[in-house]
């Protein structure tokens, strides 16, 4: 493997982690969605590069799926959803951007320090790909935890899935069938969550999920 191959792969997967941080930084829904679309585009580029250096043509399909569904369809649909629910002006409560950022950094450090010793027998490319993918997954989880707005929780979930795809393409040989079924399950999850969002709003006049807490049965 030549140095340029490694450098570009490193660049793209590092960019994915960086865009994750950009997403944590956003406090408007529209800009969050745009950043998410950017994340998907970077993912598509990273996967396409993996396809090129591994000479695995089926990964190009994965990249196309990522670009079409996650970079195009889902952000546009969420944009429409937000406009229809008239929450596009809402500045959501994140609970301190700085604290979230620090948590995110700690998570990246954690995933690197966990992944590097565990995968010491694998090639450099797969190792760092896995480390970055784990950090993207953890950052997506962090986003789901720190956001109260249901739409941004959906975005956090999709980010997590992007991390999984990155991991799968780095570790050679995910069959195309799996990838297609994952893409469809994401779509179905998106539809379910969309319906769920409307239900929440019908009931509570808000998409802030903390409104659900008051309806919990077993409160200590």
């Amino acid at each position: 493997m030549s140095s340029l191959d490694f450098d570009v792969a490193h660049l793209l997967s590092g960019l994915m982690v960086l865009v994750c941080f950009l997403m944590l930084y956003q406090d408007r829904l529209y800009s969050l969605l745009n950043t998410f679309a950017l994340h998907a585009v970077v993912l598509a580029l990273a996967v396409a590069w993996q396809a090129y250096i591994q000479a695995a043509p089926h990964l190009y399909v994965t990249a196309a799926i990522a670009l079409l569904f996650k970079g195009g369809f889902i952000p546009i649909a969420l944009h429409r959803l937000i406009r229809r629910m008239e929450i596009h002006r809402e500045v959501e409560i994140v609970g301190g951007v700085g604290v979230t950022m620090l948590f995110g950094l700690a998570l990246v450090a954690l995933s690197i320090s966990v992944m590097l010793p565990v995968t010491s027998s694998a090639g450099t490319l797969a190792r760092e790909d896995l480390a970055f993918a784990l950090s993207v997954v953890l950052l997506g989880l962090l986003m789901m935890i720190t956001r109260r707005n249901a739409v941004s929780q959906v975005v956090g979930f999709m980010t997590l899935e992007n991390g999984l795809v990155l991991a799968a393409t780095g570790a050679k040989g995910m069959p195309l069938v799996v990838e297609i079924s994952v893409a469809f399950s994401i779509l179905i999850a998106f539809i379910v969550i969309g319906i769920f969002l409307f239900r929440i709003r019908e009931r509570f006049d808000t998409v802030d999920v903390s409104a659900l807490d008051t309806f919990r049965g077993d409160r200590q």
Partner: peptide
């Protein structure tokens, strides 16, 4: 952090 990851290379 990213530099540490690529140090193996």
């Amino acid at each position: 952090l990213l530099l540490f990851v690529s140090r193996g290379h």
